[in-house]
Nucleic acid binder design. Structure first.
Lengths: 194, 194
DNA sequence: CGCGGGTTTGATGATGCTCAAGCCCGGTGG
DNA sequence: CCACCGGGCTTGAGCATCATCAAACCCGCG
């Protein structure tokens, strides 16, 4: 179980973890399963866990007044899920985080994460790396949102994250792109004929 | 000059910097001025500096095939400017970073930053804090982009960053919001009459 | 077999873009 | 000191894009 996380960390640092480095990390993460459609986090609750996905697929989203869902993030194997704002600030979240497929997770609580961050340099390095990648990805997504058309954003996502199209239904992809399911359907039809 | 940065760091950590902590940081940052309309970074170049704004206003943007500008970020006093992707990966940037007003900066080169990161815990803590805030802000901006209308995004920006409206012309605000200058003008007229 | 979730298609309307013109105002040079 | 220029802002008309609503369809699963 935990071995998956160890491999992940090894891959993201330049050197493999020693046993001494690994043990405190291993001990901080608890294994947990959620069934499809189960919530990890519901709007209004505080996000208590930083979760590493061993298996399965998840999404983070809001529901607006009209009942429309807006998906901020997807997560699959080897991704991390949390509402960063709620987790860090310990404030109620505006998001829902839900298992879309049955998932297996390794979770760490905030206090344990803060502790681990102090005592474990590999963990610190890994989270730094994570932040860096996150910033870069977010920068790109924002740029796409303000400068590309719906079709361009679709093509971009198809290129950069084709796996989303295999794991999530199209109405969710549409929601992630910030367009309606009908529009995405028409864009795809249109793109085929070229 | 450098004192502004020191105050900034003090404010972002819980304890004031000691002299020993401060000196290596001070030595790593070089003071530099740019005139209005001067580029810090041009599309195609590698972003070599991580810049702290002491005075002035800047923007990071792209220009598309049709010649339209798309502003990803604004920066004013006490903000940091760089293209994170280009700086970290040392790859050519797709962005321009330009002084909109005359600016005074403290700049650190990538190699010095990496070094400082290793030897200075306060600097490390500060950049972590910066990353955390950046992630939270980006998460919000992405959510706004996929779930809010143009008018809602305008009102949100007016609430969260009113200072932008004092420092940048409306066509730039529009570009930042991902709408045309004409649309922003109409939204404002409309919002007044309510 | 029937149900329900997901997708497609069509018709209509709202939102926001584009192009064009005019205005306002501060800065510059004659 | 005034005229002019240019950048920024506004306004209007027409158009493209995308959302909404409604209906039909498809298909896997109980």
């Amino acid at each position: 179980m935990h071995q998956v996380l160890r491999n992940y960390i090894d891959r993201h640092l330049n050197v493999p973890l020693t046993e001494e480095d690994w043990l405190p990390i291993q001990d901080s993460f608890l294994f947990k399963k959620y069934r499809k459609k189960q919530y990890l986090l519901q709007e209004g609750d505080v996000c208590k866990y930083f979760s590493f996905i061993i298996k399965g697929a998840m999404r983070q989203y809001t529901v607006d007044q009209k009942g429309n869902e807006h998906i901020l993030r997807f997560g699959i194997e080897n991704w991390w899920m949390m509402d960063r704002e709620s987790f860090e600030m310990e404030t109620p979240s505006m998001y829902n985080i839900e298992a879309w497929e049955d998932v297996e997770l390794l979770q760490i609580r905030r206090d344990a994460a803060v502790m681990l961050y102090e005592i474990s340099e590999p963990f610190r390095k890994m989270t730094q790396e994570l932040d860096k990648r996150g910033q870069i990805a977010n920068q790109k997504r924002i740029h796409g949102a303000i400068s590309l058309t719906a079709e361009e954003r679709y093509l971009e996502l198809l290129k950069t994250h084709p796996v989303f199209f295999q794991r999530f239904p199209q109405n969710m992809i549409a929601s992630y792109l910030g367009i309606s399911a009908e529009t995405l359907s028409r864009i795809r039809k249109n793109a085929l004929s070229k």
